[in-house]
Every structure is written in structure tokens, then in C-alpha cells.
């Protein structure tokens, strides 16, 4: 089982590394531009947020956004393509358990999230002088978030029947949730109704906890954020495993 798991993970890492111009490089450029425009040029006019200057405030959210998008993109694209070109059959005919297949794809998503997150972090460090307040919290939230969105990408890939289907969720659901999850602002500045509504957005908890790891300050309780993440991971893992075991949209 270990060899099979390792094989899937290596295959996934090689897949996105081979096309690094499409997978690793663009998020680094995009986020550097975000920082330059929103943090550097507009940040001074916005002033301070959550007791730090705006540039430092948005860095954790921007890094986590790339982690979310890339972890999701990796599993959704890789698993859908495996279905599309039928190479998923290589796994189906072999004695690999469903858990190992799922774990392998999720690990691939986490690996890409980590690679891109690290790349963005390095790019940000080049422009901005900052330190991570608590590396343990930062890494834990990164890991749980990457796992969660890799699972979400996997489920999307299972249901996807066309290339359109793998871009609908990231564009129309994921991106608005990220932007409205407090990536660019603290929910303190919102009217009370919108503050309460924001708390139904799971990404708010992730961004907030990640910001706690980076800056040492947050709006919500860390244990609540971790609980939300763990609960969602559990639910999505059970759903993904069920879909894989039943062979839905994979086996006729």
C-alpha cells in the first residue's frame, strides 16, 4: 500500500512540476501583483487593519488564497483528466485500495498547494519585511486547508463530465467565497448583519486562523477554526470515499 501511495504522490508531483509554467509560476506573478497594487499602492491610503498596516494584513489571505486555488485545481484537473483519457483504469485494474487512491490525489493537491504557497511566500519576502508569529499554527492551518480543498476538487472531478464542469465551481463558488471570506478586509468593518453572514463562510475561519499564525491577531477563536476545518474535512472525505468506492461516474 505504501508503494502504491508513494507512486501516486510522485506521479502527481511530477505532473504539476512538468508544467510549472502553468501551475507554479502564474500564481506567484498574480499574488505579487496583488501585493503591489492592493498592499503597496492602495494600502497606504487604507491605513491599518487589525492593528497592522494593510500590506501586512493581506499577506496571509493572499497566500492562503493561492493554497486553496492550487490544491483544488490540482486534484480537480488531475482526476478529471485521468477520467477523460481513461488512465484512471490503470488504478482501477490494480489492487490499490480506494483510501490509497484518495490519499494519493489529496497528497498531490497538498504538495502543489505547498509548492505554490512557498513560492508566493518567497516572492512576498522579497518585497516585504515580515516574520511569522507562530509557525505551528500557520502550518497546521495551511495543511488542513489544503487537504479540505483537495478533497473538494476531487469531488468536483468525480461529478465533472466536461472541462466546463471543472471551472464552474472555482469561478462561481470558490472565488466569491475566498474574496468574501475576509481575505482583503477584517469583518469588523462590516455592518453587523454581514459580519454574522460572513461567519457562515468556512473560508473566513481559515483566513482568520492563518492570519493568527502570521500576525498573532484574529477575529475568531483558533479552536473554532480548527474544528470547522476538521469537520468539513471529515464530511468531504466520507463523501469522496463513497463516490470512489461506488465508482460513481468512474465505473459503469
Amino acid at each position: 500500500m505504501w508503494i502504491a501511495y508513494k507512486t501516486i504522490v510522485i506521479k502527481e508531483i511530477l505532473r504539476f512540476s512538468r508544467i510549472w509554467v502553468q501551475t507554479i509560476f502564474p500564481p506567484i506573478i498574480t499574488t505579487s501583483l496583488y501585493l503591489l497594487i492592493f498592499g503597496g499602492l492602495m494600502g497606504e491610503r487604507i491605513g491599518r487593519m487589525q492593528e497592522v498596516d494593510y500590506l501586512h494584513f493581506i499577506i496571509p489571505g493572499i497566500i492562503l488564497m493561492t493554497v486553496i486555488q492550487n490544491a483544488y485545481a490540482n486534484t480537480v484537473a488531475s482526476f478529471f483528466l485521468a477520467k477523460f483519457n481513461h488512465s484512471i483504469e490503470e488504478l482501477l485494474v490494480s489492487p490499490v485500495s480506494h483510501w490509497v487512491i484518495l490519499l494519493g490525489y489529496i497528497s498531490g493537491g497538498v504538495a502543489r498547494g505547498f509548492a505554490v504557497g512557498l513560492g508566493v511566500f518567497a516572492a512576498v519576502s522579497f518585497f516585504v519585511d515580515f516574520t511569522i508569529n507562530n509557525i505551528f499554527i500557520t502550518f497546521t492551518i495551511f495543511l488542513l486547508t489544503a487537504i479540505l480543498f483537495s478533497l473538494a476538487g476531487f469531488i468536483n472531478a468525480v461529478f465533472a463530465k466536461s472541462f466546463d464542469d471543472i471551472s464552474i465551481v472555482p469561478t462561481f463558488i470558490l472565488l466569491p467565497m475566498i474574496y468574501l471570506g475576509g481575505m482583503f478586509y477584517s469583518i469588523d468593518i462590516l455592518p453587523e448583519f454581514w459580519q454574522e453572514l460572513s461567519k457562515f463562510n468556512p473560508i473566513y475561519y481559515m483566513v482568520d486562523a492563518f492570519r493568527l499564525g502570521f500576525l498573532g491577531s484574529s477575529n475568531s477563536d483558533l479552536s473554532t477554526s480548527i474544528l470547522v476545518l476538521l469537520l468539513m474535512i471529515f464530511i468531504l472525505a466520507v463523501v469522496a470515499f463513497y463516490l470512489l468506492k461506488r465508482g460513481i461516474n468512474i465505473k459503469a
Binding site: K11, L14, R18, N85, S87
Partner: peptide, 18 residues
Amino acid sequence: NFNPFEPIEEILLNQAGY
């Protein structure tokens, strides 16, 4: 039913890995 974007030796080694 193989990934056309994988080198052919990789295809064999991956299959063995599974």
C-alpha cells in the same frame, strides 16, 4: 488508456507501483 503526457517508462513504473 494511458496518460499521453507521461513518458513511457514512467507509465510502466507507475503501473508496477500500483
